[in-house]
Computed example of a mutant assay.
Amino acid sequence: MAEERSMPKGLKPATDLGPILIFFAAYYFGDLYIATAAIMVTTLIALAISYYYTRSLPMMPMVTAVVVMVFGGLTLYLNDETFIKMKPTIIYAIFSVILFAGLALGKSFIKILFDNFWDLSDDGWKKLTIRLAVFFLAMAIANEIVWRNFSTDLWVNVKVFGFTAATFLFFIAQVPMITRHQKPQDPDGSA
């Protein structure tokens, strides 16, 4: 089995945000089809870099990559921008459904993803899961409203800046709840 390497500082945010920033630049220096091809390529590069360092492919980036490849491919093959505009809706809806399904099964998939970052009570994980599932559902609805009713220019700006800012603000808004539900630490530093 291959050994996991530590990812250089700053590379994780670059692999997370790089594809969307390249999409934005390619759109403004080219068009939506060039931007679609660019996000497809950079998404695969980001996954390859992540795999090189971690020797695993995280679930959320994998789901995103599959949807990017399918809907990006359809956009390019059919020469129809509708598919790439639907991509965020599909991704957000998938994540929302997965989180709600996990809750119905008595599981918090968010706990599996973020257990290394936070040590929350079961109630805290449940609340965070519900909030994130509702947030993803709201983002899916917002994407549908924007791409169906406004210009492509506005949709690209909302996708790149609006959705990124909304996600950042969502997690900032969760800090008080996360803090309230942190498990107490023993004096030796363990939970």
Score class of each variant (00 low, 15 high):
residue 157 N to T: 01
residue 9 K to W: 11
residue 58 P to C: 05
residue 138 A to S: 12
residue 39 I to F: 02
residue 93 A to Y: 09
residue 112 I to Q: 12
residue 52 Y to M: 10
residue 155 W to E: 09
residue 57 L to D: 03
residue 191 A to N: 12
residue 65 A to W: 07
residue 112 I to T: 13
residue 80 D to L: 08
residue 116 N to V: 00
residue 21 L to H: 04
residue 184 P to I: 05
residue 39 I to K: 08
residue 125 W to E: 02
residue 4 E to M: 04
residue 88 P to I: 10
residue 117 F to C: 04
residue 58 P to N: 13
residue 84 I to C: 07
residue 75 T to A: 06
residue 54 T to I: 01
residue 175 V to T: 14
residue 164 T to Y: 08
residue 170 F to D: 02
residue 149 N to M: 11
residue 95 F to Q: 09
residue 42 T to A: 09
residue 158 V to D: 06
residue 189 G to L: 02
residue 164 T to E: 10
residue 152 T to Q: 12
residue 130 I to F: 07
residue 162 G to Y: 08
residue 146 V to C: 11
residue 189 G to M: 03
residue 1 M to H: 13
residue 164 T to K: 02
residue 120 L to D: 02
residue 49 I to V: 15
residue 11 L to R: 00
residue 70 V to A: 14
residue 111 K to M: 05
residue 171 F to C: 04
residue 110 I to F: 02
residue 153 D to W: 05
residue 118 W to P: 00
residue 41 V to W: 01
residue 100 F to K: 10
residue 53 Y to K: 11
residue 57 L to I: 15
residue 143 N to M: 04
residue 179 T to Y: 11
residue 75 T to D: 10
residue 182 Q to T: 10
residue 183 K to N: 12
residue 138 A to M: 14
residue 113 L to H: 04
residue 118 W to A: 12
residue 137 L to R: 09
residue 19 P to R: 10
residue 138 A to H: 02
residue 84 I to M: 14
residue 60 M to D: 04
residue 43 T to Y: 04
residue 31 D to N: 15
residue 68 V to I: 15
residue 155 W to I: 00
residue 143 N to K: 02
residue 180 R to C: 00
residue 91 I to D: 05
residue 59 M to S: 11
residue 117 F to W: 00
residue 58 P to Y: 06
residue 136 F to H: 15
residue 65 A to H: 08
residue 37 A to P: 03
residue 38 A to T: 06
residue 78 L to N: 11
residue 173 A to L: 06
residue 16 D to N: 03
residue 110 I to A: 06
residue 92 Y to N: 15
residue 49 I to C: 08
residue 25 A to F: 12
residue 118 W to T: 10
residue 42 T to K: 08
residue 70 V to D: 09
residue 12 K to D: 11
residue 106 G to N: 04
residue 52 Y to F: 14
residue 76 L to F: 03
residue 154 L to I: 13
residue 129 T to D: 03
residue 59 M to N: 03
residue 95 F to K: 09
residue 61 P to E: 08
residue 190 S to M: 07
residue 100 F to Y: 15
residue 45 I to F: 10
residue 10 G to I: 03
residue 147 W to H: 15
residue 153 D to N: 14
residue 124 G to I: 04
residue 98 I to L: 15
